[in-house]
Design a protein around this nucleic acid. Structure first.
Lengths: 123, 123
DNA sequence: TTTTCATTTCGCCACTTGACGAAATAACGT
DNA sequence: ACGTTATTTCGTCAAGTGGCGAAATGAAAA
């Protein structure tokens, strides 16, 4: 794999928020407004983080109806990508802040996405 | 492993020079002046990079005579550290710039360390 | 076609990072 | 003990990063 490509991977993993986003996606795909709710940043900030992860190949996305869903890549992804995800996941297993994210996400998934979005995009 | 510790790892790997330093150490320990010669940065810059790698646990060091030698950690290192090294090594196998570093390093190892240091510490 | 609205892009700001040279440190040789 | 010297620390500076809000985008709904 090219050095540039590898550095895109390592730089993408060099931010705590982005790492937590990846781990949050282990439970299945999420739309931007759900991730926004989980981390409490502005939608534009969340979108930027997700685009950096996407650029690195660490997430895939699809658009359905009004929402863009992001998910972890499938088995077709390059080995270094999957290995990087496995590495960071393993390193953080049993980590308290990750468990807290999972708990909070569980609550968010009970809510209506439309409601979440409208709360974030006022007017 | 604590989130903070993991982020020290990912941030240490998020710089091309530091990654190349790690791979250069695969052939065995190197002293600071050898690493300095390999990458062409100021000694203070190289020292800073090595200290960041050390802080993350990705290298160990020992002092002998006039020189400080850095090396990759042994099997006693935490799993995430060894896994991170294995990951980055695998991702960059067959990468041209790494092979070039190895070639250049081979030349440097033929030289006398004392000579290298004196060239770098003028006066 | 026009409106609505979730997401992205852009411009700006504060903070961090990586580079250097100068000065401090620490350990060896004399 | 003293001087030499390899390495580290410190101060500074330019460049990169992550945050936000406003504006642009683009696709579905009306």
């Amino acid at each position: 794999m090219k050095m540039k490509t590898v550095m895109n991977l390592t730089k993408a993993l060099a931010d705590e928020t982005r790492v937590r986003m990846l781990l949050a996606l282990r439970g299945g795909e999420l739309c931007v407004c759900q991730v926004t709710e989980l981390f409490g940043f502005a939608p534009s900030t969340v979108s930027k983080h997700l685009s950096i992860l996407h650029q690195a190949g660490l997430v895939e996305s699809r658009k359905q109806e009004r929402w863009v869903y992001y998910r972890l890549p499938d088995q077709n992804a390059p080995v270094p990508v999957r290995a990087g995800l496995a590495w960071i996941t393993q390193a953080l297993e049993n980590e308290a802040c990750i468990a807290a994210d999972v708990r909070k996400l569980k609550q968010i998934l009970k809510m209506d996405p439309t409601e979440l979005c409208q709360r974030q995009c006022p007017k």
